[in-house]
């Protein structure tokens, strides 16, 4: 039997909140990717960058992702506070979604509540660490 796990019982509890968050953040990331790709074409991606750089920019609109292209000056348009805010949102939704996903995978194979508590604590610290590092990189770039 490999049926998928049932959706958690709705209500004010952690599992249900993360179940909902996973779906909502996934769709938010779709929207953010759409904003990235439309913005790139708006700024002249069709003639200035190749498909690899376009995809990198779509996943994460960071100016470092498009430096080795034919864009004359990334500081015009591509490296702005607007795109920094988009990056922050991608990082928040993406990292939280991803770390929660790792928690789901780990807890499928961990039974003891103590081990689960330990893995959750470590994952929370890793989430915090990754968020801080990402914000540093975004503000620096």
């Amino acid at each position: 039997m490999h049926s998928s796990r049932p959706a958690p019982q709705s209500g004010f509890n952690f599992e249900y909140f993360m179940w909902l968050f996973t779906r909502v953040s996934g769709m938010a990331l779709f929207l953010l990717a759409l904003i990235g790709i439309v913005g790139a074409f708006w700024m002249g991606a069709r003639t200035q960058i190749d498909v690899g750089a376009l995809l990198r920019w779509t996943f994460f609109p960071n100016p470092f992702h498009v430096v080795n292209t034919n864009i004359p000056d990334v500081t015009i348009g591509w490296a702005t506070a607007y795109w920094q805010i988009m990056q922050m949102m991608i990082i928040f939704f993406g990292v939280t979604h991803g770390i929660n996903g790792v928690r789901m995978v780990i807890e499928d194979y961990l039974e003891s509540p103590r081990k689960r508590l330990l893995s959750r604590s470590l994952l929370f610290l890793f989430w915090l660490f990754l968020m801080i590092v990402c914000v540093y990189v975004i503000l620096y770039s």
């Binding site: 995978v105 990754l130 990402c134 540093y136």
Partner: peptide, 24 residues
């Protein structure tokens, strides 16, 4: 879905740390 999700999170973590070390 599991393989691709784990692939992304491992890639993003290492990539961000490498970018942090290079640029910051």
């Amino acid at each position: 879905h599991r393989i691709s999700g784990l692939g992304i999170i491992i890639f993003v973590s290492i990539h961000v740390l490498a970018g942090f070390s290079t640029h910051v």
